[in-house]
Simulated scan of single mutants.
Amino acid sequence: MFRIITLFLFLIICHYDSMAQFTDSTFYYLGYASSGTANKTNDGDSYLLNNAVKFSVRKKSISLNATNSWMYGKQDQKLTNNDFSSSLDFNLYKTFPHFFYWGLANYNTSYSLKINNQLLAGAGIAYNLVDKKNTLINLSNGILYDKSDLLLNDTIPDRYHTFRNSLRLLIRFNIQNMIIFDGSGFLQNSLKEKEDYILRSNTSLSFKLMKWLSLTTNYNYNKINRTERRNSLLSYGLTVERYF
C-alpha cells in the first residue's frame, strides 16, 4: 500500500509543473496532502494514513471551498481508524471590511469516534481580528443543525438531532512564503444539553520545499462528548498545491 501511495503522489508531483499563489487574477486552488505514521516492533505494529483533497474558488466578494479527508489505521491488525469527512463551505464578503458571512455543510463518519453518520449544516458571521498579508486571526460564530446516528458505549444506537452553537478561532502565519502555520479550533455546544458538545482542532506547520511542494506536520484532535470518544493524531507528510 505504501508503494502505491508513493507512486500516486509521484505522478501528481510530475503533473504539477507550474505553481503560484492567489493573485488578483487567480481564482482556483487544488491541493492534495498525504501524511501518516508507521511503527513496527517485536511486540506488534501499527500504521495510520491521512489523506485530504481540497478545492477552492475565490473571487472578490465570495469564496467556495470543498474538502474531503480520509483517515485509516490499524494496530496489531485491529482496526483503529476508518474516518471520512466531506465538507462544503462558502464565505460572502458583502458588508463591512474584515467582516463576512459563512455557510457550511459537513458530513462525517468515524469508526474511532463511533459516528455512523453525521450531517452538520448552518450559517453564521465572522470577523478578522488581524487581517494582514502574512497574518490572519479570525473569530466566527453561528448556528448548526446536527442530525446524527451514533453508537453509545460502542453498541447502543443513538439517533438524534439538535441545534448547536459553533464557535471557531482561526490563526494563520506566513513567514516569507517559506514557513506556513495554520491552526483552527471549534467548540460546538448543543443548545439543548450542556453536556453535549464537540471539540475539534486542526494544526499544521508546513515548510516549502518548492513553490508547489511542502513538507507538512499535522496535529488533529477530536472529541465527541456524547459518545465519550476522542482521537488525536500527529503525522507528517507531503502537500502538493496548484493555483490557477
Rank of each mutant, 00 (worst) to 15 (best):
Y107A: 12
Y107F: 14
N108E: 12
N108R: 08
N108V: 09
T109A: 08
S110I: 03
Y111F: 13
L113Q: 11
L113C: 09
L113Y: 01
K114Y: 07
K114S: 12
N116A: 09
N116H: 08
N116Y: 05
N117Y: 14
Q118W: 02
Q118Y: 03
L119V: 13
L119E: 00
L120E: 04
G122H: 09
G122W: 05
A123G: 15
I125Q: 06
A126F: 05
A126Y: 01
Y127T: 06
N128M: 14
D131Y: 12
K132T: 15
K133S: 15
K133N: 14
K133E: 15
K133H: 13
N134H: 08
N134R: 07
T135I: 14
L136V: 15
L136I: 15
L139E: 02
I143K: 05
L144I: 09
L144M: 13
L144T: 00
Y145D: 04
D146H: 06
D146I: 01
D146W: 00
K147I: 12
S148N: 08
D149I: 05
D149M: 07
D149Q: 12
D149C: 03
L150M: 06
L151K: 12
L151N: 10
L152P: 04
N153E: 03
D154T: 06
D154G: 02
T155L: 10
I156P: 00
P157H: 03
D158C: 07
D158N: 14
R159V: 13
H161R: 07
H161M: 10
H161I: 06
H161N: 12
T162K: 06
T162H: 03
N165E: 11
N165W: 01
S166G: 14
S166A: 11
R168G: 08
L169N: 00
L170E: 12
F173C: 07
F173S: 08
N174T: 15
I175K: 04
I175E: 07
Q176A: 14
Q176N: 14
Q176S: 12
N177R: 07
N177H: 10
I179G: 00
I179H: 03
I179M: 02
I180S: 02
F181T: 08
F181S: 04
F181G: 03
S184I: 13
S184Y: 13
S184P: 06
G185Y: 04
G185E: 10
G185S: 15
F186V: 11
L187F: 09
L187R: 03
L187S: 07
N189E: 14
S190H: 04
S190E: 02
L191V: 14
L191H: 01
L191K: 01
L191T: 11
L191C: 07
L191Y: 00
K192M: 07
E193K: 14
K194P: 07
K194H: 11
K194Y: 14
D196W: 02
S201V: 13
S201H: 09
N202M: 10
N202A: 13
N202H: 10
T203A: 10
T203Q: 09
S204H: 04
S204P: 01
S206W: 00
S206D: 00
F207Q: 03
K208E: 08
L209A: 09
M210F: 09
K211E: 02
K211G: 01
W212K: 08
W212I: 07
L213C: 05
L213F: 07
L213T: 01
S214Y: 06
L215F: 10
T217Y: 06
T217M: 11
T217S: 12
N220W: 04
N220I: 15
